[in-house]
Design a protein around this nucleic acid. Structure first.
Lengths: 275, 275
DNA sequence: TGAATAGTGTCTGTGAGACAATATTAT
DNA sequence: ATAATATTGTCTCACAGACACTATTCA
């Protein structure tokens, strides 16, 4: 039988907060960036790689496996605050692009107890980072192959190299929504392959209709570099004239020029905002 | 000092689940549908309204205010299972379109204690519903006006009529992401105006590039009806030829016809799937 | 017959895809 | 000179917006 209360205050004063079994919540962040690697040929541009920051776990559960940076959400902080806290710890940067992705909450996703994960995606310009990484963290280049209903991601940090495979099964006829399941994974902890896959899907889509890519760029950049960023994330080559047509309204030419190698120098541009 | 464990099992056996303060989690569902209302003029088509199911709270907190259907997430169920449970209770239907929207977790969003809300959007065809609604539930027609940076939603169930206003502030230059804040609301509980606004934004976007709309339709429908559904959700009129061009690849003509009023009868179509 | 919806035809402009052509640099 | 990237020009085709036109029904 429900008791009668005189007012909301009266109710709150008598509220029994233990009536429902509580659970724990964490944030996990897919921190994405684009890495450059030198080419052997002096004429060629640097290679670019879409990359994600992983942390090697030095404690149970999933000891010695890699996972996304994350942490428990305090009782007095929002998940976004927790994500910013983790981000500051890992990168020493503020004002990073941060977007909530999805809440993963399989009952058995953590062997310890019921823990749900509110996942985020962050985009950083690697030029703003110093080279010192927080303990056990490492950038992994990703090679993404989407074939049929499988997403295969090769992860490589120069020392370790492994694949994860995520299988997509269509949820319903009417949309593009898929249920993701892990088809192959023996190096990533928890359900983090799913988080990475959601992040990749999200940023791929957003590249098409927003300017998120500029969060991965330094203040001044060439259109060639920018195009490379689009290309490594989308996993396909773009035609120069088409790319420039689309991007032209969003960037502003500066009078600076970069002289790079055995080819015509390129003008430096900066982001102007979407007009 | 961290203790040394021999193995993952050893660690789990000694794990202290009380180390972090836990919190509660609920699901809240924006159940959307499209309602028809008769026209006085026998020639005209029925009016259509985009509508949402609300429940009048009969207990604290927010007693006597309206809220979205929802409930606590059990320790042994996923948020999606919880959502399906709530949905079955409210509509008596299974196989309803259900999509996770966003996790709202402001520290003070619930006056009782820290409760985060994993929100979902559901789409139902009103023809599948019987008229008996679960206790205190009621369908509200929505009149949505987006002007400048404000979303104004008029809610009307025939007896009660009120407005809520959500203010959008741009999060960053590079995307279309906004921070939503409640600018006006005195009849909806919690932060549910934000949940409704996210749901509306989500379905508006998905109308453009997916076939979600068909989840709101009965098996057989006329193209005029379908167009009305798009129009009331998008809040604008569409040109017939353009609409038919786009939709034609997704529907299949049947030999059935509906004779409606003082005008040419219309052919009935059914959803074919996106070719 | 008139008012309403159902359904089709067609013109025009915009914009993406494709490819060609020119410019400029270090070795 | 050559191989690379930088940058621009232009042709074509698909498609969305716009509007006109025909078809069919009931009071």
């Amino acid at each position: 039988m429900e008791k009668e209360y005189k007012s909301e205050e009266d109710f709150l004063k008598h509220y029994d907060a233990s009536a429902f079994e509580k659970l724990s919540a964490t944030v996990d962040i897919a921190i994405f960036s684009v890495a450059s690697s030198k080419q052997e040929n002096y004429r060629k541009l640097n290679n670019k790689h879409f990359s994600v920051l992983l942390v090697k776990r030095n404690r149970y559960p999933f000891k010695d496996m890699w996972c996304l940076p994350g942490g428990f959400i305090g009782i007095d902080e929002t998940s976004e605050d927790a994500a910013k806290r983790v981000l500051a710890r890992e990168t020493n940067l503020k004002n990073i692009y941060l977007e909530q992705l999805y809440t993963f909450d399989d009952v058995k996703r953590d062997p310890r107890m019921r823990i749900i994960s509110i996942s985020y995606m962050a985009l950083v310009d690697k030029n703003r980072l110093d080279d010192t990484l927080y303990e056990n963290a490492s950038w992994f280049n990703m090679q993404i192959e989407e074939e049929d209903k499988n997403i295969k991601i090769n992860l490589n940090n120069g020392e370790e190299n492994f694949d994860i495979v995520i299988k997509k099964t269509l949820k319903e006829l009417t949309t593009d929504r898929y249920k993701y399941t892990i088809a192959k994974n023996d190096r990533l902890a928890f359900d983090h392959p799913l988080t990475i896959a959601s992040g990749i899907t999200r940023i791929k889509n957003k590249l098409e209709y927003t300017d998120v890519a500029f969060n991965l760029m330094p203040e001044y950049f060439t259109l060639g570099e920018l195009q490379q960023v689009y290309e490594v994330i989308l996993g396909k080559e773009l035609l120069d004239p088409a790319f420039r047509r689309i991007i032209s309204s969003k960037v502003e030419a500066t009078d600076k020029v970069r002289v790079d190698g055995g080819h015509r120098p390129s003008r430096l541009f900066k982001y102007k905002g979407n007009k």
